[in-house]
């Protein structure tokens, strides 16, 4: 039987965590793009796009991410579409993070006071010009800290993809723990690596918050 040294475990975990990072980036970038589209539907004046965006948010915030992963992986499989764990994980995480990002961003747009809308309207600006020059630039500023903060949730959310067999950090931990019989060491290290990934993000979010508050 092979003996796993501490270094073996650590290098294997670090090697696997690149998938955690990649998946997080893909989920965050894809989710952000999708959320941007949903945002314009949610804050726009047209009624139906707004309703659909709200329904989307309700569905993806109101069901566990794990169920969404299962549906993406097994559900599509049942329909005869062969999905790899990577594709299913990506798709589910993108859809999930978009639902949260669009709510964060919508809140930031709503936070811009009525006075800004009225002042720009009184100057003869139309809806598009008000959005582009007055409301969105201010909302963007408000949105940066909570958006960075949410990225921590995305990183931790990737851990669930281990259940559909995607070999990221948590899945690698499970495999190594089964093979090495050292669950405490292995999962201790897994936790530390997650922390090392998330801590800079939450510190960054706090810094940005302070910085943007001062500038305001």
């Amino acid at each position: 039987m092979t003996q796993f040294t501490f270094v073996d475990i650590l290098t294997n975990l670090l090697w696997a965590s690149r998938w955690t990072v990649l998946l997080s980036l893909a989920a965050f970038a894809g989710g952000g793009l999708l959320a941007l589209g949903l945002l314009f539907a949610a804050i726009g004046r047209a009624r139906w796009p707004g309703r659909l965006a709200r329904l989307y948010v309700e569905i993806f915030q109101g069901t566990p991410l794990l169920m969404q992963l299962f549906l993406a992986f097994f559900g599509l499989g049942l329909l005869g579409i062969d999905v790899s764990p990577w594709l299913a994980a990506c798709a589910a995480l993108i859809l999930w993070s978009a639902a949260f990002l669009v709510e964060i961003w919508r809140g930031c747009v709503m936070a811009i006071g009525r006075g800004q809308w009225e002042a720009s309207a009184a100057l003869g600006m139309g809806y598009a010009a008000q959005m582009r020059h007055v409301v969105l630039p201010q909302a963007l500023r408000l949105a940066v800290p909570p958006t960075v903060g949410f990225s921590v949730q995305v990183v931790k959310g990737t851990a669930l993809t281990s259940i559909i067999g995607f070999l990221e950090l948590t899945k690698a931990g499970t495999v190594l723990s089964n093979a090495s019989f050292q669950p405490f060491t292995v999962f201790g290290l897994v936790a530390l690596i997650y922390f090392a990934l998330c801590f800079p993000l939450s510190v960054g979010a706090r810094r940005l918050e302070r910085k943007l508050n001062v500038a305001h």
Binding site: A119, A122, L123, P137, R141
Partner: peptide, 23 residues
């Protein structure tokens, strides 16, 4: 909206709370 905008070009408004664009 088009007529409202045309009207607002003729009549300016100043508010109690200034409502300058802070950015």
């Amino acid at each position: 909206e088009a007529r409202l905008r045309a009207l607002r070009l003729k009549v300016g408004m100043i508010f109690q709370q200034f409502n300058l664009f802070p950015h």
